[in-house]
C-alpha cells in the first residue's frame, strides 16, 4: 500500500513517456550498447588509425549507413502503405553498372551519375507498376527483386565478367575514405538524411504521402494526386537504394550481384518497423528509422564481437528484435503491466 503510494506520483508521469514513440527504439539501442560495454570494457574506445576514427561505435555507424539509406527509402514507400522488396536487387544492378562502366572507361564522376540514374530507373519501374498499373506493391516489386540479380549477372557478362573488381579513387573515397577524421560515408549519409528531411518535412510531400497511406481515396477526394505521390515515393526509394549501392559496391570494389546486400530489404523493413511505423502506412518517422537501422547494426556488431558461435547469430537477432517489437506494442505493455499489478494485489 505504502509502496504504491510512493510510486504513484512517478507512475503518473510514466505513461506519457512510455507512449512516446521514440523511447523504445532508443532504449533498445542503449541497452544493446550497455550490454556490449559490459561484455567488452573498451567497447567505446575510439582511436585514430590511418587518419580516421576507429572503434566499435564508429563501425556501427559506418556499417549502418547503407542500411539506413535503404531504410529511409523504405520508410517513404511504407508510408504510402506500400513495400519495396527490390532494393537489394537495385543495389546489385547499380554495382554491376558501376563495374561495367569502369571497365568501359567512363570518367568516374559520370559513372556516379549513371549508377544513380539506373537506380532511379529501377524506382520508376516499380512506381509505374504500383501507381500506374495498380499492381499490389508486394507483387510489383517482387518482379524486380527476383530478376534484378540476374540482370546484374548479365551486365557483368558485358565485359567478360571473370574479374568484376575495379579501382576508383572517387567512388572508394565516397565509401571507405574519410574527411578529416570522419568516414566519408557518414558525411554522405548525414547530408542525404538532411536533404530528405527537408524534402519530406519542409515541403508538403511528407504530409501527402502520409495522407495517401492513411486513406488513398480520401486523399484523392481532398485533391491529392495519390498515384503521383506513390510514384514519387518509389522513385525516391530507388534513388536512396542507389546511393547505398554506390557505397556498398565501392566498399569491396567489386560487383557481386548474387550476394551483395542480400536480405537488405528485410533489414530495411525491420528498421522502419522498429522505428515505430506500421506496415499499414500513413506514418513516416525518418529519424526513428535511422535509429532502427542502428539497432539492427548494433545487434549484428555485438554478435560478431561476442564470440558466440555463428549457428546462434540469427536466433539471437530474432529474439532481440521480437522483444523490441513487443515492447513497442501498447497491447503487450498493457498486459504486462496488468500482470504485475495483479501480483502486487
Amino acid at each position: 500500500m505504502m509502496v504504491a503510494d510512493v510510486l504513484r506520483p512517478r507512475g503518473a508521469g510514466l505513461p506519457r513517456l512510455r507512449d512516446t514513440r521514440a523511447v523504445w527504439p532508443v532504449l533498445a539501442l542503449i541497452a544493446i550498447l550497455v550490454f556490449d560495454w559490459v561484455m567488452v570494457p573498451n567497447f567505446f574506445q575510439i582511436r585514430v588509425v590511418e587518419g580516421r576514427l576507429f572503434g566499435n561505435v564508429i563501425d556501427i555507424l559506418y556499417r549502418a549507413t547503407p542500411t539506413a539509406l535503404v531504410s529511409l527509402g523504405m520508410a517513404l514507400v511504407i508510408g504510402t502503405k506500400g513495400i519495396d522488396l527490390s532494393v537489394g536487387s537495385t543495389i546489385a544492378i547499380v554495382g554491376a553498372v558501376i563495374s561495367w562502366r569502369i571497365h568501359a572507361g567512363d570518367p568516374h564522376i559520370v559513372i556516379l551519375f549513371e549508377a544513380l540514374a539506373v537506380a532511379v530507373v529501377c524506382g520508376i519501374w516499380n512506381g509505374s507498376l504500383v501507381a500506374g498499373l495498380g499492381i499490389q506493391p508486394i507483387i510489383a516489386t517482387l518482379i524486380l527483386m527476383v530478376s534484378g540479380r540476374g540482370i546484374g549477372l548479365l551486365i557483368n557478362l558485358l565485359y567478360g565478367g571473370t574479374d568484376p573488381s575495379f579501382d576508383s579513387p572517387l567512388l572508394q573515397g565516397l565509401s571507405t575514405g574519410h574527411l578529416w577524421l570522419i568516414p566519408t560515408r557518414l558525411v554522405v549519409g548525414a547530408v542525404l538524411f538532411v536533404a530528405l528531411w527537408l524534402v519530406i518535412r519542409r515541403t508538403a510531400l511528407g504530409l501527402f504521402i502520409e495522407a495517401v497511406g492513411g486513406n488513398a481515396a480520401a486523399a484523392d477526394l481532398a485533391g491529392v494526386n495519390a498515384r503521383r505521390i506513390i510514384f514519387v515515393a518509389y522513385v525516391l526509394c530507388g534513388l536512396l537504394a542507389g546511393c547505398a549501392g554506390v557505397i556498398l559496391t565501392a566498399d569491396t570494389h567489386t560487383s557481386d550481384p548474387v550476394s551483395v546486400a542480400m536480405y537488405i530489404e528485410l533489414d530495411a523493413i525491420l528498421a522502419v518497423v522498429i522505428g515505430g511505423a506500421s506496415l499499414g502506412g500513413g506514418r513516416i518517422y525518418l529519424g526513428l528509422t535511422v535509429i532502427g537501422a542502428l539497432v539492427i547494426q548494433a545487434l549484428t556488431t555485438s554478435i560478431l564481437i561476442s564470440g558466440l558461435r555463428p549457428e546462434y547469430n540469427l536466433i539471437v537477432k530474432s529474439v532481440v528484435v521480437m522483444i523490441v517489437l513487443l515492447l513497442q506494442s501498447r497491447n503487450v505493455r498493457h498486459h504486462v503491466t496488468m500482470l504485475f499489478q495483479g501480483r502486487r494485489r
Binding site: T252, S259, V260, L304, P310
Partner: peptide, 8 residues
C-alpha cells in the same frame, strides 16, 4: 564467425 562466403 560466418562471413557467408562473400567479400562483404
Amino acid at each position: 564467425q560466418s562471413g557467408d562466403f562473400t567479400t562483404e
